[in-house]
Amino acid sequence: MKKFLNTYDEDCIACHACEISCARIYFKVDDLERSRIRIEEREKSAHIVACNQCETCVQVCPTLALTVNAQGVVLVNNRLCVGCYMCIAACPNESMFRYLGGIIPIKCIACGLCLDSCPTEAIRIEEKQEN
């Protein structure tokens, strides 16, 4: 089984609380660019962008800096990453991110620490069959 952050756009009210929560936890800043989850405000609804752990990026990484842990979550090994961003371009749902001044790309690692910040339960940690 694979652990991932499932997203429910229809419940999202685009309050961005999850992004703030994530950026504070991992970077200790309020900069939404540092969040591993992104909320896109579209005309009719919000769209939540977070890694579904599909592993496409793992295949393209030239340094094997992207690995899959026992729970099926894709992790970035900062020691091996050379910041080429081939993973960002290859990501089919555009959930691998860069930020100003950063070198290592960031992505959701299904830690679940943002869940409490969401007032509508539009994000949930779930499990699915392996890809």
Binding site: Q59, V60, C61, P62, T63, V82, C84, Y85, M86, A89, A90
Partner: peptide, 12 residues
């Protein structure tokens, strides 16, 4: 097939 065959890192 399907391998990142760049001769330098970052060559997609």
């Amino acid at each position: 097939q399907g391998l990142p065959d760049g001769c330098w890192f970052g060559c997609s």
